[in-house]
Every structure is written in C-alpha cells, then in structure tokens.
Design a protein around this nucleic acid. Structure first.
Lengths: 150, 150
DNA sequence: CTACTAAATAGGAATGAATCTTATTTGTCA
DNA sequence: TGACAAATAAGATTCATTCCTATTTAGTAG
C-alpha cells in the first residue's frame, strides 16, 4: 500500500475517531498506521513489538486495548483462528482467510462464490446475523516445501 | 440422541482408538460419552465439570489432553470462536455454526449452499486445504429478547 | 494562551486458558 | 502373570488477556 493511500486511510480513521468522540492520540494513530502497513494480520503482541520501536515506552495494554477499540468502532476486525492469540485485520472489504496450521500465517483470498453466500434460511428464529467468517485451514506452500525436504 | 445411538458411536470410537493404538481407558470413554451427550459444544473446562461428577479425581489436564487427542484422531473438531476457550464438537457431519456474541452459545445449522462451496480456485499456489470453517456471528433470539426488554 | 476535565496511558498485578513436568498408575500383550 | 509403554493426577509454568491505579494528555471552554 503506497504512502498516499495510507495517508488517506489515516485521515478517514481520524474522522471515525472524532465521530465516536475518541481522542486522537499519537499512540492510536501509530498503532493504526502499523496495523495498516502490516499484511500479516498481526497479533496484539506482534504489533506491540513494532510500535515499540517508535514509542519505546508504550505499554502492551495500550496496544491491546486500542486494537479492541478499533474493532468496536468498526475500523478493524478480529480474525478467527484456532487457538493462540487474536489476530487483527484492518481490511474491511469482502475477503476470506487461509490459515496455515503449521506456521500460523494468515493470508487473504478473494472468491465471488464465497462473498455471495446468502444468510441461510433455516436458522433458528430470530438469530440476528452480524457477520460471516470463512477460514480455510491447511498447509501453506512454504511449509509444504519444508516438509517435503524434511 | 438415544442411548442406543450413543452406544454405537462409542463402539466406533473404541475401534478408532484401537486403530490408532490408543489405550481404552475409562477416562477416555467417559469424556467421549459426555462430549457426545452434550449439544453445547462444551469447552474443556465445561466438560471437566461434568466428567468430574462421575470421576471425582480426574484432572483438568486429562480432559484437555484427551479432547486434543480426539481432534488428532478425527473423532471431534475444535469449533472456532472469537476469543475465549476452545470449544469441542463431536458432530463430524457437514454443518456450520451460529455464535451468539452476547451469551457465547454455539448452535448448529445446516445449509446446502454452504456445504457445497468448492475450494476456491484463486488461492496461492500449493496451499493445501485441509478444512473449512464457517461461523456466523450475531445475537441469538434469547439475547435479543432480553435486550429489547432492557 | 491557560486551566480544567474526562479520557487515555504506563506499568504492574491478576486472571484464565493451555501446556508442560514428574511421579504414579494402568491397559495391553507376550 | 509380569513387563513396559502409555496414560493419568497434580501442580507448576507459560502465554494471552484483562484489570487496577496513579499519572499524563487531548480537547475545550473561558
């Protein structure tokens, strides 16, 4: 993602914060920027390690709390994986995830037939669907290569 | 599920254990039986509470380790939820889950168009798909009722 | 520009889930 | 039956997350 696109996203993010009456703190902006720039769907701790380079005495709690705030105001989502730490995703467009159960890497993929799934008819009365998560688990190419060598 | 059907499932389970050279211990069978009988997709701890009634000095570790063994030999799956403890599911047939983000309840649903989803074409080369997870998150009818009252 | 206030942060303590360690017990099979 | 590998109980440890509290700071009204 080029610097210009990032700048635009950050402006939109700041607007969203204002709409939610949240203060624009340097920590918040830095955490959002690093989340945007990472395509790894980082955990709170991974992001903490990165942001710490620019803010040596930021606390883990701030990073974690801020990420949850992002989820609450709808600028990020939690990616569901099987055990381990929560992973965060700033990409709000329709997409789905591949989860390598060997190395833990999470990769985006796009697929029309997955996007177009309608909410099913025969679900218990009145269940109010808020979101849909599709995760394919498997072994990524890198891990397969390593495995076939070993 | 009636007692006869349970008995049959347990026999099949014991066969599977033998095929994997796993010992048939009373704990294993009890844990499997209680997992079968619960339709709540229980966590390791929830199951521990139940099994403890029949085996007062079973350890949590045994329950947890045994459940992971079940996953490894393919007689149960981990249900993916967003944070919180892992939940286990002995139902191996095609089905998907509704997850109430308010009360945490996990409910099964069946839907042909969800079952029939093909593995997508345009995923990174060589990603070897092992499984597919679809979870709809939302608010269950019970929680909606409570909410509209409050 | 200054002062005030509610919100946010840093740091550490506490909680909860899952795993690991070790001594003991128990299925399984010869 | 006896031997042995596998499984268990119990508690310690690790890791992720949340909570607590004193301090700092962004936003705002004067």
């Amino acid at each position: 993602m080029d610097e210009q696109r990032i700048a635009g996203k950050i402006e939109a993010f700041i607007d969203t914060c204002r709409r939610h009456h949240l203060k624009i703190t340097p920590q918040r902006v830095a955490i959002y920027r690093e989340l945007l720039q990472s395509d790894m769907h980082p955990s709170a701790d991974a992001l903490y390690q990165i942001v710490q380079q620019a803010y040596p005495n930021i606390s883990f709690d701030t990073v974690n709390r801020t990420l949850m705030t992002f989820v609450n105001i709808g600028v990020a989502n939690v990616v569901e994986i099987f055990g381990g730490a929560k992973r965060f995703d700033p990409n709000l467009t329709d997409h789905h995830h591949l989860h390598c159960i060997q190395c833990g890497k999470i990769t985006d993929f796009h697929d029309r037939s997955f996007d177009q799934l309608e909410d099913p008819e025969n679900i218990p009365d009145d269940f109010h669907v808020l979101g849909k998560r599709i995760v394919l688990k498997g072994i990524c190419s890198e891990c397969r290569r390593k495995r076939s060598i070993a």
